[in-house]
Design a protein around this nucleic acid. Structure first.
Lengths: 228, 228
DNA sequence: CGTCCTATTGAAATTCTTCAACACTCGTGG
DNA sequence: CCACGAGTGTTGAAGAATTTCAATAGGACG
């Protein structure tokens, strides 16, 4: 059942052998999410987890007056959900059309006990998310608007396509976020994001079609503008 | 040997029974760190980990032009170091006089294999750090200067004393950070931090002695200013 | 007592935001 | 088929929050 799942190779399921996978697949169900579908809300009880198979999931936090911050983006084959906590500390929303493989909490617990490698993979993913979060702390705290936007575009470019090879220096992709969402990620306003995009285009680091389709001729140059 | 270690109860060593602890203690060594001692540098190979027993460790990241961001504070009995990565993604520096219990990488690996509970605790700590990092992303991205400073003071107040009970609504403590370090945490300048401290004092939320000793009469009121 | 480091305060400068107008895209219904 | 409208994106000008520059104050220590 899981053979076709993109999450198979890098995700947690790669830790399972064929028989475990078969057994496990009895408890999972695949789910298609339309854009903007919320499938996990901050402070809600966590009942199940999800492997992102395609699309992009945004993790957000809210201030009570409505100010919003995106605190993470999950690309295939990332795992969504906090194991060691009963309540979610973030809201998870499909930023694009997406498909996920949902797993009940009880199944994942059993899985961890049965296969230490699953636990290791979850831990590794958690560490990777922590690294990402800290890289963004640096960006939000110390980078200028144009550096922030360049960093975000570079980050998305590197993660949007799970099959992308590291050698490729140019890339074309669909932005999974609106200007407003980019702003909510970077602690800016839509207007500022838009202006910086225009500036990057002026620098020849970016070409924009439809305002959503982006061509980056030189990823390293973009990364350079984003600051190390 | 570890009986006196503050890290015993909440930290990872709490997962060990007496005999494991004794065996384990043969590989650890306690180390006193004077203020500003760097004991882990970004991109360096990780050779050993550390349990914070007292004091505060700051985790920082640098941009190549020297701009600095503090991306985490580790209080007793937190664990410092990334298990699932060979190179550190942060620099760890003693923000105050501190003492740590250092553990060679090889010992921790064996420990995890021997006791699943240790792995679980490390995972849980990692998740807690991730939650913290994301809470600060919200703060850096969307809070105003005064909200940032109030949030940081509240955070420090809650964590500085491992023996503090949740019932206490007022607290006096020594700031483990200079104004400049607070600024590096919050993505501000020292001047702005100083001005917001003055403002908070004016609001009666803070009393300041020596500029380092702080009295907070009402933690909830402070938290309120920091935004939810 | 002077020196160094940290912190505070003021005034000018800058970045980013806010407010406002307009353009573009896409789907729906006349 | 075209017009309309809603959502999204761009651009300009004025405003605000924070930074930068500068001067002063307070402590710790030799």
């Amino acid at each position: 059942v899981c053979q076709s799942c993109e999450a198979r190779h890098r995700g947690i399921c790669g830790a399972l052998d064929e028989s475990q996978l078969l057994e496990f697949s009895r408890y999972t169900h695949q789910r298609a999410l339309t854009k903007s579908t919320e499938f996990l809300r901050e402070d809600d009880r966590i009942e199940h987890f999800a492997n992102v198979m395609s699309g992009v999931i945004k993790l957000t936090k809210l201030l009570d007056d409505g100010r919003e911050q995106i605190v993470g983006l999950q690309f295939a084959p990332d795992f969504v959900g906090e194991i060691s906590s009963d309540e979610s500390s973030v809201t998870a929303i499909a930023a694009t059309q997406a498909s996920v493989c949902a797993i009940p909490k009880s199944a994942i617990t059993r899985l961890i006990d049965a296969s230490p490698d699953v636990g290791r993979r979850l831990y590794r993913q958690s560490q990777r998310e922590l690294e990402d979060a800290r890289a963004w702390l640096l960006a939000l705290g110390r980078k200028t608007a144009i550096e922030k936007v360049a960093s975000l575009l570079h980050y998305i470019a590197l993660n949007i396509d799970p099959t992308r090879s590291d050698e490729e220096t140019e890339i074309t992709f669909e932005l999974p976020l609106t200007r407003s969402e980019m702003a909510d990620f970077l602690g800016l306003t839509t207007e500022t994001v838009s202006r910086q995009m225009t500036k990057l285009r002026g620098l020849g680091l970016l070409e924009i079609q439809n305002s959503r389709t982006v061509f980056v001729p030189d990823l390293d140059a973009l990364s350079e503008v984003g600051g190390s």
